[in-house]
């Protein structure tokens, strides 16, 4: 890719200081996201996907320790690169939070203040991130509500979040997140709490908006079906590590990592009702005792003693560009250093 990535994450490690000591949440995660690209981030609860996403906006709590050598570089098209992890002052972070990057969450009810009208919240954030007057901000907000398919936007503008239905709240949140014209949208399980019919509407809406605004989306979900229908590329996370990255087609049709395979086998499939549902055996280990070697070896049917429980697998890269962190992947290891 010759294009400068919108966001470039290199060797990101995140630990949290807790009473029980330092807990590793994310370890050596690297990925790029190009402008206009939708990258899906998939994994079970506890895999570190939300922590990774929040790091892009520095939203993790005060007890967060970023590993040495971690870097997150944000390069909005036409602007100077920002080293996100080097930001120290709140004022500088504000350029990133809600400015270059917006985020939408799983539970829209929890994301709106209950006692302030939806409209006032939309206007407030526009005034923080732009030089708009109140009237201009109101006009744009109503326009954005209309764009996301909310009927009677002018009336809805004056209402409170509790007066909205679930699907409408999610639309309003998308409208709010997009009104500042962010370069990157982080969508953390935006459709998980919605009915399938509303989910389909929200997915269509997001697709349209990517085409229209040309922004990049980091789409976090545990639903591979949603990823298949929205993302260009997908990154699969397990216990803080990326185990597989590649284009959606390649990863879903030809998964290289046993964990990715396991996630796909666990999904109920409509076209084959007789296929048994195969759970990934065991539970995800506690981050307090991360397995040594390959983090997945405790649940992996291919795990080999003396190898997988000792040695961290390097990324093997297929011709298709699919990168797989497994000792047994059918692809050569590429040296980290340029040959």
């Amino acid at each position: 890719m010759t294009e400068t990535p919108l966001i470039s994450v290199k060797d990101l490690s995140i630990r949290f200081r807790t009473d029980e000591g330092l807990i590793t949440a994310v370890e050596d995660v690297s990925f790029d996201l190009a402008p206009g690209e939708v990258l899906g981030l998939v994994g079970e609860s506890g895999s570190g996907k939300s922590v990774t996403a929040k790091a892009l906006m520095r939203l993790n709590g005060d007890n967060t320790v970023y590993g040495e050598g971690s870097s997150i570089v944000l390069t909005p098209p036409g602007e100077a690169p920002v080293d996100v992890l080097a930001l120290r002052r709140e004022k500088d972070m504000r350029r990133v939070r809600g400015g270059a990057i917006s985020m939408i969450f799983q539970e829209p009810m929890a994301s709106f203040a209950p006692a302030i009208s939806v409209g006032d919240q939309m206007v407030e954030q526009l005034q923080i991130h732009s030089s708009m007057t109140k009237a201009e901000a109101k006009e744009l907000s109503i326009e954005m509500l209309a764009r996301t398919g909310i009927p009677e936007p002018a009336r809805r503008f004056t209402q409170y979040a509790f007066e909205f239905s679930g699907g409408m709240r999610q639309r309003a949140m998308i409208a709010m997140a997009l009104s500042t014209k962010p370069r990157l949208l982080i969508a953390d399980e935006p459709t998980t709490a919605l009915d399938v019919t509303i989910q389909a509407q929200v997915i269509d809406l997001m697709k349209d908006l990517v085409t229209e605004f040309g922004m990049g989306i980091l789409f976090i979900t545990h639903d591979l079906g949603v990823i298949a229908q929205t993302a260009d590329r997908v990154a699969v996370m397990y216990l803080g590590r990326l185990v597989e990255t590649g284009t959606v087609r390649e990863v879903i049709r030809n998964p290289g990592h046993p964990y990715t395979r396991g996630l796909i086998d666990a999904l109920p499939k409509l076209h084959d009702l007789d296929a048994p549902l195969t759970p990934v055996p065991g539970d995800i280990p506690s981050p307090l005792n991360r397995p040594p070697g390959c983090v997945f070896h405790t649940r992996c049917h291919m795990a080999e003693k003396g190898l997988c429980d000792v040695k961290v697998p390097e990324y093997r890269i297929r011709e298709t560009g699919q990168s797989i962190a497994c000792h047994f992947a059918d692809a050569p290891v590429t040296a980290k250093e340029p040959a």
Partner: peptide, 20 residues
């Protein structure tokens, strides 16, 4: 038809429900 298919090339637009 609203269930997202696992096949990226299989997009079902035909029957999508409008409204709530």
């Amino acid at each position: 038809s609203a269930i997202p298919s696992l096949d990226p090339d299989e997009t079902s637009q035909a029957d999508k429900l409008e409204g709530e």
